[in-house]
Amino acid sequence: MTGTKTQKTREQLASAASSEVIIEFEKINKWYGDFHVLKDIDFRVHEGERIVICGPSGSGKSTLIRCINNLEAHQKGSIVVDGITLNKNLKNIDHIRTEVGMVFQSFNLFPHLTILDNLTLGPIWVRKMSKIDAQATAMKYLERVKIPEQADKFPGQLSGGQQQRVAIARSLCMNPKIMLFDEPTSALDPEMIKEVLDVMIELADTGMTMIVVTHEMAFARTVADRIFFMDDGYIVEENVPDEFFNNPQHKRTKEFLSQIL
């Protein structure tokens, strides 16, 4: 298969640039009760790589990325993140969560805190930063997502796009090594999608390792190093963007792309 070959070379390219494997899934299986959500998931992500995951609704995308920071626990297989194996050890989980930032579809800002307090909470309580330093960091990231003037407002006073940018800044304040995005633009009005995607593109330019679940195919095409296509709990196809869009291998991928493009 040509696809697999290109993917191999691409992965080798990435590993040549930086040989560090930062996320490794090995034969991951997960069930919700009797329902088999993740089936033999197997992949590696190298430091600095940008992965886009797409696939039909209910195929297990959210579940997959939520396993990376143990918001969901897997039942079979092994996950290694940043050199640490995820198991029942709470210390490991806590450590991994400080290294992995996550942005949700529904923003999940803390409505009772101001924007600034939303951003400084983690640095102060987890990183034990002084309040002044934490606020300086927070302002730096608010500027980076272009809303420093909203620092003293409450989340409810901001538009969806602004809230999502705050959520990105909140994760960045923890200085994570990996950023996970679970459909970050799906809850947004069309005119706000771009401002969030722009922030994500800038983030990608800084070399952050990113795993993004999204249906924004233009974003995937320009930013992703590799695209995973999930269906029914499997990663059905995995390829570089050009190959993925122009020469999809799997029948389900073709169907999906014809619907979405």
């Binding site: 920071n69 969560r97 992995v100 999940n108 009772h112 909470l121 987890v126």
Partner: peptide, 26 residues
């Protein structure tokens, strides 16, 4: 909502911190 717990966990707060800083005040 459950998302508040999850958001707390993803910025590294432990159980008691999430409960006392995020959940209970609301």
């Amino acid at each position: 909502p459950r998302g508040q717990f999850e958001a707390g966990h993803t910025i590294g707060l432990g159980y008691w911190q999430t409960i006392s800083l995020i959940i209970l005040p609301q």
